[in-house]
């Protein structure tokens, strides 16, 4: 590796890690929005993944791959527990149910001994190498892209357009809703574990309502035409505070202003273009 690249990676390691982790979280949000649902449980699933991963690393000698797998499975189980009874909910009702999940989990983290209470967990080994994060982001983006381009993606787009008509052409709407929620939980869980092993310290407040809204804003800013949109949204919202550093105290103001301007003038996001699946055969 050339020295300049090594220096660069060393200097910006934290930022690159956040870019990758936020990209995964944005994909997790996209998967739910793609079937026309609004879930605000992404931060909760991320927190479950983070705590699961941290506890596995601190108390067992499992290899990192298995730790990550465990961090995906636990949020998926939670998503199934929340998803099955709430499948009939749509729109803001599902959003409220998933906010509820986040609050319940936060209270558990604060009060349970094993999660370190309000102080959180420290001393988590820094096992998230840059290449692991970027590889997982690339893999997830590729997978979501390929599914989105297939008949499954077309069914999801149909559901987003008109749920009743989608059901009539044979789309099993409840199964897609549940499947999307489970996939989204797995992605958020992995992102959470990666972030815990990158920052080496986690606390209950990292996964509260504010985090959920931040993740949603990735998708709103980037647009949900294709999975690339939310990832670009995450990229922008992660880099922006760094780029605005020279503005010192006005940083937050400009950050907010840019988001407001995008929502006003690009209501479908920075990358609004839908995926093209079929071309007219000649």
């Amino acid at each position: 590796m050339p020295i300049w690249l090594d220096d660069f990676l060393w200097t910006y390691q934290t930022l690159i890690h956040s870019l990758g982790i936020n990209g995964l979280l944005a994909l997790s949000m996209y998967v739910v929005l793609a079937v026309g649902q609004l879930s605000l449980g992404q931060a909760a699933f991320m927190g479950l993944g983070a705590y699961t991963g941290a506890l596995l690393s601190l108390h067992t000698g499992l290899p990192f791959a298995l730790v990550l797998a465990g961090s995906a499975v636990v949020p998926v189980l939670a998503a199934a527990a929340v998803g099955l009874p709430t499948l009939r909910l749509t729109g803001v009702y599902l959003a409220i149910a998933t906010i509820g999940l986040g609050e319940v989990l936060r209270v558990i983290y604060v009060n349970a001994e094993i999660t370190g209470g309000a102080l959180g967990l420290g001393g988590i080994p820094g096992r998230s190498a840059t290449w692991i994060i970027l590889l997982l982001l690339a893999g997830a983006l590729g997978g979501v892209w390929l599914v989105g381009r297939s008949r499954f993606g077309r069914a999801m787009e149909a559901m987003r357009g008109d749920q009743t008509a989608a059901a009539v052409i044979g789309v099993n709407v409840p199964a897609y809703h549940l499947g999307a929620l489970l996939a989204s939980a797995a992605l958020a869980g992995v992102a959470g574990a990666l972030s815990a092993h990158s920052s080496t310290f986690i606390s209950p407040d990292d996964y509260a309502f504010e985090a959920a809204v931040t993740i949603l804003s990735f998708a709103i800013l980037g647009g949900i035409g294709s999975p690339l949109g939310p990832v670009v949204g995450a990229l922008v919202l992660t880099l922006l505070p760094e780029l605005l550093r020279p503005l010192h105290d006005f940083r937050g103001v400009f950050n907010g202003l840019i988001i407001v301007l995008v929502v006003l003038f690009l209501p479908r996001g920075i990358l609004p273009w839908p995926m093209t699946r079929l071309r007219k055969p000649l």
Partner: peptide, 9 residues
Amino acid sequence: IFEDMTVLE
């Protein structure tokens, strides 16, 4: 219909 889809899709 699915307004944002192409006719072919």
